[in-house]
Design a protein around this nucleic acid. Structure first.
Lengths: 191, 191, 191, 191
DNA sequence: CATGAATGAGGTTTCATTCAT
DNA sequence: GATGAATGAAACCTCATTCAT
């Protein structure tokens, strides 16, 4: 029965992520339940309200970012390349819809959940480390911080109306443009 | 009652822009009406449905962009500076909320209105001209197009959750970073 | 100015009859006004409320019935034929929509207006006379009354969904069928 | 909760038939819900829109007509009498209000529902058979068809303002008058 | 436990009617 | 007088959430 329950929970999370990507954070709970193949009652038993459900999805999302960061780092010859690869992965339009929907959610929805906040902090620390390495390599501007990378990702992944066609077609091209501005060689005096 | 009506219409547009910036495109019509100090009926008399109201606001928004572009061009010593000034103006966080809300709206809402489409095209043409001049000056990468500028603005202005604090505090810093990536001197081979 | 006013009033009545035939007794007042080419204000000046407008239309309708009755009587060789011709005229599907709409209106709307009640009574008296003549001629059953003719007309003209196609195509055929049942020769003992 | 739901559904259908008979097809959904003792939500859960509700009522109505036809046929000595009895049953003023309201509904509301269309066709076939028998008996005119019977019923049952008092008091008298016109013995040359 | 029925608040839109110009 | 702008009540429908089965 434990396995069943777990399976149900996964079905709900998957369905919720899909539906929320399609219809936004305010998608009907009933639609999510139906998509997951359960009754609304079951949904509400697992997640006492919409906030809890959203937080669970956000949690899952952050964990996937962390995993992608690790994997990018391991597969890359140097920190800058790892950073670039990660940014491109995270910027994939396929992931954008969910990110956009989540971005719409009030901060507290997430930060009130200790476990989520922890996962997030941990991920940021690893990214920070990568940023420092890229700077040590002389590849990344010294006046650029982890915050800026996060901001770039946030902007790129979370465009409410979806990315313009020419960007969505070749997202890495645009991201390279933006990252080029962060290269040490591009440095321009900040006013 | 011509004057009264005109005054009311202005009040409605102002209120709608505010409310939509605060609560998104789906903000209650009644709230907009109340904020404008009129009854819902009046709102609906002027704008037969939500789409019409949104389109009117969008129209106003595009016109303000066009005006800002002109003014940036006239006040700048060269095309690159004009472009930079315009991007910074348009990226001002104070304008972002409305832009975000508008970005949420299906394309047709605007393109179905001929007058709006015209204003938009005209604005894009002027921006395009500026882009070419900046390239002729040798300041802007040749592999960057007007589309990319528009995309950058779109990303920057339209972040659903609002910009991160450190960006909002100094938006021009981040925009310069991004624009630096578009400078001729930053060119990196596009893969 | 008197002529103008009269013309306006006629335009309103015509427009109202049309609109009410199309959309029923609850058609928007504004639609009626626009169709008549006047403002709602003007409409309300002439007819303080919807009831007054409806009554005026009903009045007009009754007068047209009376005129048709006269004309049928004068053009027919005998009372039975006159009755038949009148019934066919009044049953013309083209007139049905308005009649249906009017039939929907509470009785008081009309009977409260003395002038209307008078016109109606007068018309009924003339019809009654015709009925008696047809009976005297031996053509009409003696157990049939003016009421029955009126009822037949009411049923026929006022079908909410419009007449079935095969009836509307040849209304006089069906009316003859019904009138045949009222012929003296068709008499069947009323149970 | 199966039993409860079923009970509620019945209450809704009963209430809807009553309310619609009283106030027409456009009666407020909320009124229907309240009359049934349920919330609007429940009403909409069962019938996604007004059309669905109306169709359900219409369906019930047609089935009751079919049952009445069978029962009239079985209780009558000959086809003509069966036809007469059925027409009188169906013309009962007590049933008229609902019929009137339903007649107001656009054809598609019903014909789009396969099951309803089937019930209707079946009923018409049985009526057609009865008509032919009555003609074979020499009682019914040969130039009268099933359509005409249906039309007579439609006219009689569906008078928007309700039947005139003298008809409502003795509906079978008037119907006999009309049916007399359809008797073989009443035949008059159709023009 | 899971289910899905029921509730009702909330948002949208329409129109009758009044009244300032 | 004529106009049409403004108002607000009323109807529609959708969903979040609770709870009986």
């Amino acid at each position: 029965m434990r396995a069943d329950a777990r399976r149900n929970l996964d079905k709900i999370l998957d369905a919720a992520a899909d539906v929320i990507a399609e219809r936004g954070v305010n998608a009907p709970m009933e639609l999510i339940a139906r998509r997951a193949g359960v009754g609304v009652g079951t949904l509400y038993r697992r997640f006492p309200d919409r906030g809890a459900l959203i937080a669970a999805i956000g949690d899952h999302y952050v964990h996937s970012l962390a995993a992608a960061l690790d994997s990018a780092v391991q597969g890359a010859p140097d920190a800058w390349t790892g950073l670039y690869d990660f940014v491109v992965w995270a910027g994939d339009p396929g992931r954008g819809a969910l990110a956009t929907a989540l971005a719409d959610v009030p901060e507290e929805t997430f930060t009130d959940r200790a476990e989520f906040a922890g996962a997030r902090r941990e991920w940021l620390e690893r990214l920070d480390e990568l940023v420092r390495q890229a700077q040590a390599e002389g590849a990344l501007r010294l006046d650029v911080g982890t915050d800026d990378i996060v901001a770039l990702l946030g902007l790129f992944a979370c465009h409410p109306a979806g990315l313009p066609a020419h960007i969505a077609a070749r997202p890495e091209r645009f991201l390279r443009l933006m990252l080029d501005g962060m290269r040490a060689s591009a440095a321009t005096p900040a006013d």
